[in-house]
Simulated scan of single mutants.
Amino acid sequence: MTTTSRAVITEPRQVEMRSVPLPALGPHDILVRARKSLLSSGTDRVCYRADFAPGTHWAQWIKYPFTPGYSMVGEVIATGAAVRSLAVGDRVATRAGYQTYAVAEESRSYRIPDEVSDEDAVWFALSAIAQHAVRRAEPVLGDHAAVIGLGPLGQLVARYAAVAGAATVWCVGGDETRLAAARRAGATTVPAAAARDRILEATGGVDVAYDVTGSPSVLAAASEYTATGGTIVLVGDTPFPAQQAIGGEVLRRSQTVVGVHDSHIQRAERTPVVRWPFRRNVGLFFDLVAQRRLDLAGLVTHRFPQGDVAGAFHRLDDDLTGTIGILVDWTG
């Protein structure tokens, strides 16, 4: 195998599959045949639409032609001479683009337990970000939490907040498909327009609010129903940061604002200093899914065959009502 078919965003709102050479298989590499890939309605949507302000880190990162993607599940079909932890036939999760085959490092590929399906395993990368967000909030057993933004990442944050011991998880806004998915996970849902009054009446203000929208206007709104001394975690990475306002309540209520980004999750192995490297996050995710303590049922709302990768991206350009997870199935 010397080439792969890979999705490339050639210009804003244009994607095509291109045949590109695969890197040579190094001694610590594996060759993976793709089975499933998960699109992000946050990052991939911004990349596909070029929906970001000039001068931002988005503008520095995204240069067309651009190769998107970071969530692949596949099967190992070859290994380098020095690979020891993985074998041909293993199912793995790895951070590759939307492509039929990928060469991946053994150290950055994660064997999937038999108890975890492909459709669940493909959430591994977003799951690591969600875990990182909840840990950064330093939750306390019995906290009240709010999650604003119920796309793929917000759904995971809501579930991890519950796993971490939140007494209540309020999920704010979204269409009925997203709200129903949050309710299935035990959350209390509330329309955005009613969130302030409903949450303050029930809790007096949440201890932690997670802004998973990427919208610059949400931070100030979330501060209004976050308690004095509470924490607001910015998980959604707005492509228009100059428009993001803190609002008056953050200062008046002595609230803490915490930023979270995928790039801050350590890729190194666990050390006395690095307690939660990426691999350990993925391992916990697989364990919770296998133990049925993390329910992902219903989060994939759209499936596309490998022959319609462009259709999957075009879905990102539509109104996202009724959309949570968008899956590409490379086996069909």
Rank of each mutant, 00 (worst) to 15 (best):
A221I: 10
F124Y: 07
P272C: 12
T10C: 01
A130T: 02
A137C: 07
A227Q: 08
A245S: 14
V289C: 10
D317F: 04
G332M: 04
P152N: 14
R270Y: 01
A78C: 06
D118N: 10
R108F: 15
C47A: 14
G173H: 01
V73Y: 10
A195I: 04
T2N: 15
A125C: 12
D262L: 14
M17V: 15
S263G: 09
Q291S: 11
H132P: 00
G322D: 11
T177K: 12
A192T: 15
L25V: 13
A96P: 03
H132W: 06
Q244W: 00
Q131E: 12
C47E: 14
V134W: 11
V169I: 10
A180W: 01
V300R: 02
A220T: 11
P305G: 14
V20N: 07
R33C: 06
V122L: 08
D308R: 10
R253A: 05
L39H: 07
P239D: 09
A167R: 15
A167N: 13
A87R: 15
A220V: 07
T331K: 10
V257S: 05
T228C: 03
S85Y: 05
V212T: 13
G247E: 03
P65H: 11
T79G: 07
S5Y: 00
G173Q: 05
V32A: 08
V208H: 04
R6W: 01
D90Q: 13
G229H: 12
P305C: 07
A185K: 03
D211I: 03
L22M: 12
D44N: 10
V116K: 04
I265C: 11
Q266P: 12
G230S: 07
E176N: 06
G332R: 13
L327E: 08
E249K: 12
A245E: 15
L320A: 09
F66Q: 02
V250S: 05
K63I: 00
D318M: 12
I324V: 15
T189Y: 02
C47Q: 14
V208L: 11
I77L: 07
G69P: 07
P277F: 06
E16F: 00
P191M: 13
G214T: 10
A227G: 12
I199W: 02
A166D: 02
D287F: 09
T228I: 08
F66R: 03
R91H: 13
D114V: 14
P272Q: 12
P27F: 06
E249Q: 11
R280S: 14
R135D: 12
S5C: 06
W330G: 01
S223W: 05
A81C: 03
A209V: 04
A121H: 09
A146I: 03
Q255P: 03
A78L: 01
V235E: 08
Q255N: 02
G69L: 09
R293L: 09
R196W: 02
G283L: 11
N281S: 15
V15A: 04
G97W: 14
L219N: 07
R18N: 02
T2L: 13
A166Y: 02
I30S: 05
E224A: 14
L141P: 00
V46Y: 11
A297M: 00
A193N: 06
Q131R: 08
W276R: 09
A193Q: 11
G42M: 08
Q155N: 09
L39M: 07
F66S: 01
L150M: 13
L316S: 09
W58Q: 01
A93Y: 14
D120T: 06
L288H: 04
L150V: 05
V20H: 03
R95G: 13
A34E: 04
T3Q: 15
